[in-house]
C-alpha cells in the first residue's frame, strides 16, 4: 500500500509562504511527477512528504494514518537524492545495507536483499567498490538500490537525473519506468524537465509558485491545458501564443498553437512569414519565423525535408482543431 494524501498542507519560511494551502491525493501504485520551473516549490513539497521539513499547517496522511509529525525514518518512505547522497566511506554493499542495518534486519535477509537489488540494477560486479570509483549512472543505481531494499511504501525521487549527461538520462529514465512497472510501488518524482514528466508519469502535477496549476495524465495536460502556464510548460518546443486581432477572431484574449499543429508551405497559406533560423534535425525541421501578427518569433515544426533557410518566405496555416483559446486571465476557454 502507498496512498499519500495532502490536506491543506502549507509551508512558510518565516514571513514567506512557499506553499499556500494545497490538497493532493496520490493513489497507491501511481507514478506521480511534480513538475515546474525551478523555485516553484516542488522539492519543498517532496521534502514535506519525506518529513525533512515541517509542515506549517495541514496534514499529511500515508495509508490513512496521520504522518504529519512523524520523523522521516518512521514514515516508511525511501528517497533518491539529486546528488545521490551515497555514503562515500562505505562500499556499495554497505551503502545498500545501511537502511536495513538501521532497521535491524538480520544478516541473512540483508545479504539476500542486497544480491537481489544488485542483480536487478546490474551492480553485482561493483558491490565492493566505493562510490567514488563509480560512474554517475552507477551511483544513481546504488542510490536506487539503497531505496529498494527498504521495501518502502513509496519512493521519492528528487531530480535524480539532473546530474547525468543526456544519453545516460534517457537510459536511466527507462530503467526507473521499468522498475515502477515491476515493483508497482507508489513513486513520486520531482523534475523541472517536462520531457521526463511526460514520458514517465501516470499523473503529472504542474506546480508554480508553490501552487498546483493542474493535475492530470500527460495527454490530458497536453490536450487540455487548464491555463496558459501549463500550455506553455508542457510540450516541446513551446506552444506559440498569439494575442490581439488574430485572437479576437476566435473570441479569445489569446490563442495558442503548438509548433506541430501548424502546416508549412512555400506557396500558400494563412500567414506569410520570413524564416529567421531553420534548425534541420533530419527527422524534423524547426523554423523560427518572423512576421506573424501578434506572435514574434513563432516556432513551427515541419517535416525533415523542407528546404528553407534564413530569409526565405513561408506560408503557415494553423490546424483549426488544435487551437487553444485563453481569456484575459490566462484560463482556458472551453
Amino acid at each position: 500500500m502507498g496512498r499519500i494524501q495532502l490536506k491543506q498542507v502549507k509551508k512558510s519560511f518565516g514571513e514567506c509562504t512557499v506553499i499556500p494551502p494545497l490538497d493532493l491525493a496520490i493513489e497507491d501504485g501511481e507514478f506521480t511527477v511534480f513538475v515546474g520551473p525551478s523555485g516553484c516549490g516542488k522539492s519543498t513539497l517532496l521534502r514535506l512528504i519525506a518529513g525533512l521539513e515541517d509542515t506549517t499547517s495541514g496534514m499529511i496522511e500515508i495509508d490513512g494514518t496521520n504522518a504529519t509529525l512523524l520523523p522521516p525514518a518512521k514514515r516508511g518512505l525511501a528517497m533518491v537524492f539529486q546528488s545521490y547522497a551515497l555514503y562515500p566511506h562505505m562500499s556499495v554493499r554497505k551503502n545498500i545495507a545501511f537502511p536495513m542495518k538501521m532497521a535491524g534486519v538480520n544478516e541473512a535477509e540483508q545479504t539476500k536483499r542486497i544480491y537481489a537489488a544488485a542483480k536487478a540494477l546490474n551492480l553485482t560486479d561493483y558491490l565492493d567498490r566505493k562510490p567514488g570509483q563509480l560512474s554517475g549512472g552507477q551511483r544513481q543505481r546504488v542510490a536506487i538500490g539503497r531505496a529498494i531494499v527498504r521495501e518502502p511504501t513509496a519512493f521519492l525521487f528528487d531530480e535524480p537525473l539532473s546530474n547525468l549527461d543526456a544519453a545516460l538520462r534517457v537510459g536511466m529514465r527507462l530503467e526507473i519506468s521499468e522498475l515502477h512497472k515491476r515493483l508497482k510501488t507508489t513513486m513520486i518524482y520531482v523534475t523541472h524537465d517536462q520531457v521526463e514528466a511526460m514520458t514517465m508519469a501516470d499523473k503529472i502535477v504542474v506546480l508554480q509558485a508553490g501552487g498546483i496549476e493542474q493535475v492530470g495524465s500527460p495527454l490530458e495536460l497536453y490536450k487540455t491545458p487548464r491555463n496558459r502556464f501549463v500550455a506553455g510548460f508542457i510540450g516541446s518546443p513551446k506552444m506559440n501564443f498569439i494575442e490581439g486581432a488574430e485572437a479576437a477572431q476566435h473570441n479569445a484574449f489569446a490563442i495558442g498553437i503548438r509548433p506541430e499543429h501548424i502546416d508549412v508551405s512555400i506557396t500558400h497559406g494563412q500567414w506569410q512569414a520570413t524564416v529567421g533560423v531553420a534548425e534541420h534535425l533530419g527527422s524534423d525541421t524547426f523554423l523560427h519565423v518572423h512576421g506573424v501578427p501578434g506572435c514574434d518569433p513563432m516556432t513551427v515544426r515541419g517535416g525533415g525535408d523542407i528546404a528553407v533557410n534564413h530569409g526565405d518566405t513561408v506560408w503557415l496555416t494553423p490546424d483549426p482543431q488544435h487551437i487553444h483559446k485563453f481569456d484575459a486571465e490566462g484560463l482556458r476557454i472551453k
Binding site: 537524492f81 551515497l86 537502511p99 538501521m102 532497521a103 527498504r150
Partner: peptide
C-alpha cells in the same frame, strides 16, 4: 559535507546518534 547525505541517513532510518 553535503547535508543531503545526512538527510539520506535520516530517510534510511538512522537515529541522530547513528
Amino acid at each position: 559535507i553535503p547535508g543531503e547525505i545526512l538527510e539520506a541517513a535520516r530517510m534510511d532510518g538512522a537515529s541522530l546518534r547513528s
